[in-house]
Simulated scan of single mutants.
Amino acid sequence: MDPAQEHPDNPFGMDEECRNCPNLRDVRTNVVHGYGDVGADFMFVGGRPGPGADRTGIPFTGDDAGRRLQRILGDLGFSNSPADAAEPELDNAYLTYLTRCRHPDRGPTDEEVATCDAYLTADVRMINPEIIVPIGALALRGVAVEHTTRDADALSVEECHATTIRGRGFELVPMQGLSDQTDADTDAFVEHVAESVLDRDYRQTKGRSGARD
């Protein structure tokens, strides 16, 4: 983690009592802002908090989906903690969401995504990542519409899983939704990042050969 960073939880001091979405503010448990290394090259973006993160307030913790991502981070050398850690120790990875509150019975509406966009935009600007990993279809569409020249509605997370897509100033490496992944999907993602991203100087080659248009 960045040695100048005081703590990994909501390091930019975003509003933890946000009440901008009237249909979410009374049913959520926590507003779940970003967590991790503010000097990270890799930003992992989910669509919305899972039930575990809603309970703990820490992205991708407290449930099976979160434990899968934490295992992935460990396999890639981004985490020094066990997969079930309540506050994982991350290095070179920052975790955040497209939307920050969880409705227990439905996904976010387009209006809620738009309302939360300022938080994600601030995360991207503050972190300035080299690689963004959108997790799941909702996150892929949300990130692609702002940060690539691709038709976001035409992108399939199943087809784009464990590939690299050229973005505006960085690369996207989409990941299938954590609850939808098979072990083979997880292995394919880890292998792609380890061999096709980390095994080259991605800081110098982003947007060049090896990245899809």
Score class of each variant (00 low, 15 high):
residue 1 M to V: 13
residue 3 P to A: 05
residue 4 A to V: 14
residue 5 Q to V: 07
residue 6 E to N: 12
residue 7 H to N: 15
residue 10 N to Y: 09
residue 13 G to E: 04
residue 14 M to N: 10
residue 16 E to N: 11
residue 16 E to T: 13
residue 18 C to S: 12
residue 21 C to N: 00
residue 21 C to I: 03
residue 22 P to M: 12
residue 24 L to N: 01
residue 26 D to P: 05
residue 28 R to D: 01
residue 29 T to E: 09
residue 29 T to F: 05
residue 31 V to T: 08
residue 32 V to C: 02
residue 35 Y to D: 01
residue 35 Y to Q: 03
residue 40 A to D: 10
residue 40 A to I: 03
residue 46 G to S: 13
residue 47 G to A: 12
residue 54 D to W: 05
residue 56 T to H: 03
residue 61 T to V: 09
residue 62 G to V: 08
residue 66 G to I: 07
residue 68 R to G: 09
residue 69 L to P: 11
residue 74 G to V: 11
residue 74 G to S: 14
residue 76 L to S: 08
residue 78 F to R: 04
residue 79 S to D: 05
residue 80 N to K: 13
residue 81 S to R: 06
residue 82 P to R: 07
residue 82 P to C: 03
residue 87 E to L: 10
residue 89 E to F: 06
residue 90 L to D: 03
residue 90 L to V: 10
residue 92 N to G: 09
residue 93 A to P: 00
residue 95 L to W: 07
residue 96 T to G: 07
residue 98 L to Y: 02
residue 100 R to H: 14
residue 100 R to T: 13
residue 102 R to V: 02
residue 104 P to S: 11
residue 104 P to W: 05
residue 105 D to N: 13
residue 109 T to E: 00
residue 110 D to L: 12
residue 111 E to N: 14
residue 117 D to L: 11
residue 118 A to C: 15
residue 119 Y to P: 08
residue 122 A to E: 15
residue 125 R to L: 11
residue 133 V to G: 00
residue 133 V to E: 00
residue 136 G to S: 07
residue 138 L to N: 02
residue 142 G to K: 00
residue 142 G to L: 04
residue 143 V to E: 00
residue 145 V to P: 01
residue 146 E to K: 14
residue 147 H to L: 06
residue 147 H to A: 04
residue 150 R to Q: 15
residue 155 L to E: 04
residue 156 S to W: 01
residue 162 A to N: 02
residue 163 T to D: 08
residue 166 R to I: 04
residue 173 V to H: 09
residue 174 P to W: 03
residue 174 P to A: 06
residue 177 G to I: 04
residue 180 D to Q: 15
residue 186 T to L: 12
residue 187 D to K: 12
residue 188 A to G: 01
residue 190 V to W: 01
residue 195 E to N: 09
residue 198 L to H: 06
residue 199 D to T: 02
residue 202 Y to S: 02
residue 202 Y to H: 03
residue 203 R to N: 02
residue 207 G to A: 10
residue 210 G to Y: 00
residue 212 R to S: 08
